[in-house]
């Protein structure tokens, strides 16, 4: 007997490949979304700083914009720079 697969519909879940579980600013899960967003994933991406700490993009932008003149990483207090 031979088995021929005609169609395989699989199920997967996606995850941001961050080391941590939750965003250090909003305390929401990375795989969820920031408090301002409704939909996770593409609509509410993560961003990594040069210090390798990750945050929701919206969260860290709010932080950076409120910190003048120079923003620091909320986790390690190093100067905040987006990881290139």
């Amino acid at each position: 007997m031979k088995v021929k697969i005609l169609r395989w519909h699989a199920v997967a879940s996606w995850t941001w490949d961050a080391q941590d579980e939750t965003c250090g600013i909003c305390r929401m899960a990375f795989d969820g979304c920031c408090p301002d967003c409704k939909l996770p994933g593409d609509d509410c991406p993560l961003i990594w700083g040069a210090c390798n700490h990750a945050f929701h993009l919206h969260c860290i932008l709010k932080w950076v914009n409120s910190q003048t003149p120079q923003a620091h990483c909320p986790m390690c207090r190093r100067e905040w720079q987006f990881k290139g």
Partner: peptide, 26 residues
């Protein structure tokens, strides 16, 4: 391929879920 399109997101398969359509050839 997903990772390539959606970097840095990754897929975790739930291998027991889903449906398979197959053909047994006797």
């Amino acid at each position: 391929r997903f990772h390539k399109i959606k970097t840095p997101r990754k897929l975790l398969w739930k291998k027991n879920l889903g449906t398979v359509k197959l053909e047994l050839q006797f």
